[in-house]
């Protein structure tokens, strides 16, 4: 039977102490400010974990302990919350993240092929991180079916993607430049305007 590590043998020590955990000053201040925004400080859990994740790249045990020490909760409570949500990473991941939507609307527009090409380009399977730090995973509906098939790259919504775009996307990321700038969702007008010019989707892309 695999024995659990023999640490924290006293029940009094279940909440990490600020005295023992070195918390970056910016993170501590951010968490304290965030906690003050709610009637119950625990409400700040998700934003605080997200902030720590941004800082550390993932929710490492140390990152979790830091949040726990400032929020005065147990790390177990935090990982219980974190492991519930898709955007928290409890294992190390790359510095770039690609969430490729593979839900129905994107699937209907060829997301699976784009995902396959992304896997080939990044050089990892779904859920993997490449040696040069690109983390690729499929994702449930990201709420941008108007640009299906689409992906969220480091939080930026990009689409509609073709199989050919996958290569350019990864190249842009590797070159640390703006990814497929002409396909950013935020630059797209509402449908009525966008399609007004008589544009439409045909087999194999927009015309």
């Amino acid at each position: 039977m695999s024995a659990a590590p023999q640490n924290e043998l006293r029940h009094e020590d279940s909440v990490p102490q600020l005295a023992d955990v070195s918390v970056p000053a910016e993170l501590k201040a951010w968490i304290e400010e965030r906690m003050a925004m709610y009637p119950e400080p625990k409400s700040a859990t998700i934003p605080c974990l997200m902030h720590a994740q941004k800082l550390h790249g993932w929710l490492s045990p140390d990152a979790v302990r830091q949040v726990a020490a400032v929020m005065r909760v147990t790390p177990a409570y935090l990982v219980s919350v974190a492991s519930f949500y898709d955007m928290f990473e409890l294992k190390p991941r790359g510095r770039h993240t690609i969430y490729m939507c593979t839900n129905i609307s994107c699937m209907l527009r060829g997301a699976d092929a784009v995902m396959a090409e992304l896997e080939a380009q990044v050089g990892v399977d779904n859920g993997g991180t490449s040696d040069d730090g690109i983390y690729l995973r499929n994702f449930e509906c990201l709420g941008a079916c108007d640009i299906a098939p689409m992906a969220s790259v480091d939080g930026t919504y990009i689409g509609p993607l073709t199989v050919a775009d996958a290569k350019a996307l990864v190249e842009d990321l590797r070159a640390e430049r703006d990814v497929l700038p002409e396909k950013h969702l935020t630059r797209r007008p509402a449908a009525a305007t966008y399609w007004a010019a008589g544009k439409r989707i045909e087999q194999g892309g927009e015309r």
């Binding site: 129905i104 609307s105 209907l108 527009r109 079916c145 108007d146 640009i147 299906a148 509402a190 449908a191 009525a192 966008y194 399609w195 544009k199 439409r200 989707i201 045909e202």
Partner: peptide, 13 residues
């Protein structure tokens, strides 16, 4: 209405 999938002009209307 968010229209998506197999249509020519997906989007919010």
């Amino acid at each position: 209405v968010s229209v998506s999938g197999c249509v020519q002009r997906p989007g919010n209307y």
